[in-house]
């Protein structure tokens, strides 16, 4: 726990790392920062072209449904994926001077959060254009984002620490993420799954966050409390496990980088 106040004292570094991420990602592209918004839009378009015919009748507001799924998924997946190599990529620094190492995976998730906030813009534009009314639950959005943020940090700390000792984790996690994406009900309704899988779905944390997000945005019919409880439990569990794994190994990391 003693590392938490230390991270807070390094908040300027956290800010600079996030800024660097954002600046660097788009510096060389002609459209630059617009890509933050174009990327989920284009992905939504692909899903729409392929799946709208099948699911449009079972899902109201299909565009909003898919778009919400995509950007929530990306908030989780992009941050944790980059974080899986956080210690390896910053080995020069970690080797040379003392800093709270966990700041690197945490900054990756924070960058992803920054991207998410900008990706909300095209989401709201889509919602307005498709005539989807915004729910009064929208006030809960910050809490839900906080939950997935905490959840992602836990996963990031776990994956980045394990990667130092076994590089295979990078590839395993990549494949895992792909399967996870298809299993997160981003572009299909859960009702099409067989019952057994539906039960399994309730153990998928990201599914709860995506559903909560949809409930916040426009869908007042969803059982908010139930998903919220699941989401909160998973977030705390993930964060605790990640924190323990990282703290048990943080002094060893330097010898394996």
């Amino acid at each position: 726990m003693q590392e938490i106040p230390l991270i807070i004292s390094y908040k300027e570094l956290l800010r600079n790392l996030v800024l660097r991420d954002i600046k660097k990602r788009y510096k060389r592209s002609a459209l630059g920062f617009l890509w933050v918004m174009l990327d989920p839009l284009l992905m939504m378009l692909i899903f729409y072209i392929i799946f709208a015919g099948i699911f449009k009748r079972t899902i109201d507001n299909y565009t909003a449904y898919v778009m919400a799924g995509i950007i929530m998924w990306q908030l989780f997946s992009q941050g944790t994926k980059v974080a899986s190599t956080a210690f390896i990529h910053n080995r020069d620094l970690i080797n040379k001077l003392y800093l709270p190492k966990s700041i690197f995976p945490i900054s990756n998730v924070a960058s992803s959060l920054a991207h998410f906030i900008f990706a909300l813009i095209p989401l709201f534009i889509i919602m307005i254009f498709s005539g989807t009314a915004i729910s009064h639950n929208i006030v809960l959005l910050p809490f839900i984002v906080m939950l997935i943020f905490l959840f992602s940090i836990g996963i990031s700390l776990t994956v980045s620490t394990l990667t130092v000792f076994f590089h295979d984790v990078i590839y395993i996690y990549e494949v895992l993420l792909m399967g996870w994406m298809y299993f997160s009900a981003i572009f299909y309704p859960v009702s099409i799954l067989p019952e057994k899988l539906q039960f399994l779905m309730s153990l998928n944390p990201v599914y709860h966050y995506i559903t909560l997000f949809r409930a916040c945005l426009y869908d007042n019919t969803l059982p908010l409390t139930e998903h919220f409880v699941f989401g909160a439990v998973f977030a705390l569990l993930s964060f605790s496990i990640g924190w323990v794994i990282y703290n048990k190994n943080k002094e060893k990391i330097i010898f394996y980088l």
């Binding site: 908040k11 300027e12 570094l13 600079n16 790392l17 660097r20 620094l93 800093l99």
Partner: peptide, 11 residues
């Protein structure tokens, strides 16, 4: 700015 914040300095 990046380097000085690595050394632990505030903005």
């Amino acid at each position: 700015y990046l380097n000085a914040s690595i050394l632990g300095f505030s903005r």
